[in-house]
Amino acid sequence: MVGIVLVSHAPKIAEGTLELIKQMTGEKVLIETAAGTCDNRLGTDPVLIGEKIRKADTGDGVIVIVDLGSSIMSTEVAIESLEEPARSRAAIADAPFIEGAIAAAMEASFGKGLQDVKNAAENTRGMKKIA
């Protein structure tokens, strides 16, 4: 099953989003959070992100959901420093954080592949909240 890593500047954002997701998918999907710096500041840490990607990868790859700015660059650095084959089966979804994370987790819980999970997250872009 595709794993998911939630990368945020704030641990509370990542943990809160994880709680929301678990209401829907329970323990079915392997989801890790990588949020904040190693000395508990708001920010992102490529080393931590890399560890969490490795942890979430059971062989089917990992989709990373990112919040703002440095979370994207830190994740890129983390992915570039992974060994193969983990490296080519880790990808960032260009998606809103909460909606993208929920969509990705649902899709992964259906046993879908890496590209489908990524697409599901990215399809939440521009989703209308008010009909």
Partner: peptide, 15 residues
């Protein structure tokens, strides 16, 4: 720098 900065300047100056 990449592993200690925490903000965007970490990956940027690190790279």
């Amino acid at each position: 720098l990449v592993s200690t900065v925490g903000g965007a300047s970490g990956p940027l100056y690190g790279t």
